[in-house]
Design a protein around this nucleic acid. Structure first.
Lengths: 195, 195
DNA sequence: CTCTCCATGTAAATGGTTACATGATTCA
DNA sequence: TGAATCATGTAACCATTTACATGGAGAG
């Protein structure tokens, strides 16, 4: 059975549903809101946008600027929207976490506990910051509407739902990192007093 | 500043901290407990194990079997443990989610809402099953000890902590998938009655 | 008699990261 | 004067996935 591939394509197309954007702008968007479900560096986006253009899924128009480098603004085409529609029809492969830091925690017994606890604290802070950033994006989307009303009626329901997932993920990440750091530090202390 | 790479290596080494295993067994382990922080298909593991052996980070012994194909059991070497220790010292790059299904939800407006809701329900079930599986692994690890005691004293603290993260992740995944499916289905119904 | 499990690999293709390249503008 | 922002790309490299390949044992 066919399973969907090439999600960078579709993540890029999806980001263009909000309107035209340059590769540079998309890179920024990928850094904040798209980061909830996909990650890509600018180089990837420039390549992918050109491929999408060649395939007729996006259209570009050149914008000449005086004090800034010229840029190309991309718009999703009807064919691009269709491609997203088809993408939604084919089943996805299940997602998985791939996290260096969790590998380290798994292997904690083979390394320095204090160092690891330090990195966990840092990560907790980052995750907390990220969750607040997303929180801001969510209330910006929602405006004065209640969440229930927004979810029932707003055309921006897609970004809102992915934002909710991202916010929870980052919050839980922060909680867990803090817990793990505490556990490891307590153990590091226990080991050093025992000697 | 150097940032750690090649986590498959370290995930493999970490999995061998529990004792010797064959490539086939490791593939199983990767499917369940290691899946909380890394994913790999068997082919990758066979390759990686051979590379680790060539680098002296694991040792292999051949086990000849009568009714089963012969196998090779791998053990982590002191050099392998050192490699894990160094891995823990170098900072990790921040992790990110990469999920096809979230891309689809972001792009919901361009596709069929009922189809997407259906896939979200399926995913909710899978996530719930996975969370219960992990829950079982955790109580197996814990045995009769309280969680606090286990976290303070057990040598298996690494796997336990990653299990906690995985369990929360899957639980939150199930909750979110169910919520998103509900939202999208309600909207699908609203659209069809309006016509 | 078919399916799943055991058990290990090679080869080709795709996807993703890192390094390199350029250059003006604005802000501290 | 140095760093950050705007703006786009190429090339080399590394990691990951998919397809292909083999074959006996045991369960239903």
């Amino acid at each position: 059975m066919a399973v969907s591939v090439m999600s960078l394509r579709h993540a890029t197309l999806a980001a263009l549903l909000d309107g035209e954007a340059s590769g540079y702008q998309l890179a920024k968007i990928f850094d904040v809101s798209v980061a909830n479900y996909w990650h890509a560096v600018p180089q990837q986006l420039y390549l992918e946008l050109n491929r999408l253009e060649a395939d007729g899924l996006v259209e570009a128009r050149q914008v000449v600027q005086q004090r800034r480098p010229n840029k190309r603004l991309f718009t999703i085409t009807p064919a691009g929207r269709d491609a997203l529609g088809e993408f939604i029809e084919v089943p996805s492969k299940p997602s998985f976490i791939r996290d260096d830091l969790l590998v380290k925690v798994r292997a904690a017994e083979a390394g320095d506990l204090a160092t690891l606890a330090g990195e966990l604290d840092e990560r907790a802070t980052q995750a907390h910051t990220k969750s607040e950033l997303i929180d801001g994006l969510l209330s910006l989307l929602r405006g004065k509407q209640s969440e229930a009303y927004f979810l029932a009626h707003s055309p921006r329901v897609g970004p809102y739902l992915t934002g909710l997932r991202g916010r929870t993920f980052e919050r839980e990440n922060a909680v867990w990192c803090t817990q793990a750091a505490g556990v490891l530090r307590a153990r590091a202390a226990a080991i050093s007093t025992r000697r």
